[in-house]
Amino acid sequence: MFDGLRKLWRAKKSAPAEDDRVQGHSSPRRARNLFEAAAVYVAACAEDDRDEMDEAAGWVSPEALSFGVSELACRAVIALARERDEPPRDVARSLLGLPAA
């Protein structure tokens, strides 16, 4: 699942949309939203890429990043629980290496 997010981010990063560019310039100049920041931050954490983590953390406030990471975690646990046909609580505990409740 995170590989898909990572690939999507890299594809988007390498080819910014036309409306993301400043008129007459090639550099992107758009605000990142908290979910984009969270996706990049978490993927960078998984890859141990400190530079990318720092960049994503600078896109939004620390509070917004925290909310985005929490939302991403919830969605990831729900997706894995559906995939595994297990309760979200069991999946979350498993991901953290905790014994079954």
Rank of each mutant, 00 (worst) to 15 (best):
M1Y: 03
L8N: 13
R10V: 00
R10H: 05
R10N: 07
K12G: 00
K12M: 00
K13T: 01
P16H: 10
A17F: 15
D20K: 01
R21D: 06
V22D: 00
V22E: 03
V22K: 04
H25L: 12
H25R: 13
S27E: 10
S27I: 10
P28R: 06
N33T: 05
F35E: 14
A37K: 13
A38L: 04
V42S: 04
V42I: 15
V42G: 08
A43V: 13
C45S: 01
E52R: 14
E52N: 07
E52V: 09
D54K: 09
A56M: 11
G58S: 10
W59E: 12
W59D: 12
E63V: 11
E63G: 11
S70P: 00
E71P: 02
L72T: 00
R75K: 07
A76M: 12
V77L: 01
V77P: 00
V77M: 00
A81H: 03
R82P: 00
E83M: 06
E86R: 15
V91S: 10
A92W: 02
R93W: 12
L96V: 10
G97K: 02
G97Y: 05
L98M: 15
L98F: 12
L98H: 01
L98A: 09
L98V: 06
P99H: 09
A100M: 13
A101L: 11
A101D: 14
